[in-house]
Nucleic acid binder design. Sequence first.
DNA 1: TTTACTGCAAATTATTTGCATGGAA
DNA 2: TTCCATGCAAATAATTTGCAGTAAA
Lengths: 172, 172
Amino acid sequence: MKMKVKIKNKKEVSPERLSKRIKISPKNRNGLERLLKCQAKRGLKYSKKRAAIIEYFIKADRHYTVEQLYNEIKEIVPNIGYSTIYRTLRLLVDCGMARTHHFGETDTRFELVHKEQHHDHLVCEKCGRIIEFTNNGIEKFQNAVAKEHNFLVKNRELQIFGVCKRCQQRKR
Amino acid sequence: MKMKVKIKNKKEVSPERLSKRIKISPKNRNGLERLLKCQAKRGLKYSKKRAAIIEYFIKADRHYTVEQLYNEIKEIVPNIGYSTIYRTLRLLVDCGMARTHHFGETDTRFELVHKEQHHDHLVCEKCGRIIEFTNNGIEKFQNAVAKEHNFLVKNRELQIFGVCKRCQQRKR
DNA sequence: TTTACTGCAAATTATTTGCATGGAA
DNA sequence: TTCCATGCAAATAATTTGCAGTAAA
């Protein structure tokens, strides 16, 4: 079992530079604002590499493994280290700008939080494709189940594993 | 990324001893039969320790971490090693007698497969309690979503995280 | 000039595997 | 006797952290 002790530094620093440097479409505006607040609260400085990672991650908008992200980022930012990717993604998660999943794999996948709506995933076991979906019916029944058990819902995660349309066609 | 190469030995051996030694209630009968077939197919021998682990795991019928199971088993079978727990649980999973989950934790939890019905979990973030439930409505909507996407469903996993009834009451 | 950021190597955690030895068939 | 099962230690995999040098503010 893993035990963690976290030491947090808090200090005021203006994060304007980060917001100027990162070019983001409007849909990510509020996510970015959350990030800036979070940075300010922690007294983080602007950093070229971190900004590059965040910008890339936001633009790509995929369900990344650290390994995948590392491989793609290092083409743009040579000399980048694994730790920086890990640290940046952890920051995004802590700020609520990213979310983690384990789609039946050993390593963690990071997903950008930019939609207001909760969504779930179809995970293709052949090609690894991940398809997002939202379904109100499922949510309603989940709430009903929780109520039955007097369970206070904080979060939920649903994955449907199988074979996507494309891979089914490919087989024939 | 982890790469695996598995070498399998197949040989005929009678698994009668295991079935005699493990005392199991009727509801686990078919699970046990699957296990015995699986053992026979692989040419596995009977083993006192393995039998003890399996029997304990079946009787307890909980969502075990390897660590938890190890700690409890070693009281009964002194001198047991972690590897044996790992190897036995892997065997159970391969035989379809156990299933793994990651309830937002880093380590794997193992669950006994003894119900015919698929079920999902309410996971209490305060006390770690895991409550199983089945809900046909959720399943129907899941199937509908899959059909919409022409997705061939192989498996599904739903977790609802939050605070259980007991822990909510405790807070006040 | 202070203090955060980064890469690297070493540490941690969860899990698996090689090997010598004990035990089942 | 044969060959699987086990414990232990070493290996692996994913992730985190310490540290010394670099770069923001």
